[in-house]
Design a protein around this nucleic acid. Sequence first.
DNA 1: CGGCGCCTTGACTTGCATCAAAAGTAGTGG
DNA 2: CCACTACTTTTGATGCAAGTCAAGGCGCCG
Lengths: 250, 250
Amino acid sequence: MSVQTASPRQCHSTPHVNCADCRLASICLPISLQIDDIEKLDDIVQRGRPVQRGDRIYHAGENFHAVFALRSGAVKTVCVTHDGQEQITGFYLPGEIFGMDGLASNNHTNSAIVLETSAICEIPFARLEELSSQVPSLQRRFFQLMSKEIAQEQQLITLLSKNSADERIASLLLSISTRNHNRGLSAREFHLTMSRSDIGNYLGLTIETVSRVLSRLHKQGVIALDKKHVIINDLDALKSVASIPTDAVK
Amino acid sequence: MSVQTASPRQCHSTPHVNCADCRLASICLPISLQIDDIEKLDDIVQRGRPVQRGDRIYHAGENFHAVFALRSGAVKTVCVTHDGQEQITGFYLPGEIFGMDGLASNNHTNSAIVLETSAICEIPFARLEELSSQVPSLQRRFFQLMSKEIAQEQQLITLLSKNSADERIASLLLSISTRNHNRGLSAREFHLTMSRSDIGNYLGLTIETVSRVLSRLHKQGVIALDKKHVIINDLDALKSVASIPTDAVK
DNA sequence: CGGCGCCTTGACTTGCATCAAAAGTAGTGG
DNA sequence: CCACTACTTTTGATGCAAGTCAAGGCGCCG
């Protein structure tokens, strides 16, 4: 089970870094908090051991007691239908929060599965809730996070409902690119941590279609593709495949 | 513009009913609040004039300042893509809360459009937020509402990603039926307030497909259908079309 | 009555799924 | 280091569910 991936430990994945010093603070939960409020938040955040590919952070059906912030690595959330099929509902990158499903019913509706060696902060919800009452900007921030989650899912709904296979895949690549960029990484070049099968599941496509579309984009020179390593050669062309105006900031 | 539908004014749409007396209290925002907390909530709720089919409660891009509870009638929320297409992201029935998009960015990402003569409660968010800090059970309730919204959207994502036209439409009928039932109305017989085109838009199908599937269900005797009036003749058969186990509660 | 939306139905087309097989990649153990 | 197994990805051939195009019906309103 100890699948050590090539992903090296990075400075921000060391357990002792606190929220104030974390280089992801500008995009994570602490946004817009005062320094002493960050310290209060810091007190309730639990930083765990690195987790490995395939590990589950929580299971669907499990009691909900915490939300999670991803420090490094990547995570997917999946929910299971009546007939046992899995649907991936989101991919999470460093600085992003997951696990807010399950708040409604006190039980997680999704499972969270680790895609590559990751470092994760656990934030016990009871204490977060309590602190939110005392720190209005934290309460607001948390409302915003949930609202952002809703907005993103609506984007996905639109993608699934209205867009072709090409558009869906181009959109996903652009989304990852943008999120990488916001974390201060390259928008042009990145590693697809998820398998073709994960991508297909997420976008409502078969793995064959995913493979074909990626090959075509490669042949057309829009992207360069080596296994899971992606380079966006022509950003405007990719946006045009995604039917996104080239001037859209997104 | 004044499209007066056949829908009669009902007792719970009269503006003077307060939260404590509203017959939707058991499924609306006040759930699990103490009686004096309901009164505090009641103080900030604004009950407006009835609105008509086609009216917009808020526009995409508009400043976010309130969430809304539907007292009677029906509402759809839509968001607009880059290329000007509309995507319906939800249908709302009495007792349900909408307008929580826009919390993230302080601007609504959706528009809310009235489907039939409706009565709506407006809840200014600033005051709700403030009250939430003082009343932990309200804060919790509001977190839950947003989380429920997330869970429902994930259901829709799964539906769009994995299910056939028949399954999508049967699922929608069952969802409306269940929600009616929870409001104390008939689960067997109801009025489809939305047009075929709305249904198609919501479910990622063309209006022709919607029409064909409904006709087929009618011919098979699973439902009776007269214009917008629906009677579910064989609930188990409908669940089976939706690929939902017949013993599933929801 | 005639015009305008909304809905239904039929004939045809197509994008993606399905089926099938081969090629590439990784992990394991001799 | 290579052979072996298992898994993932690619590529090709074929089929079908749902989209598109087109025509006609029904109800509503001026």
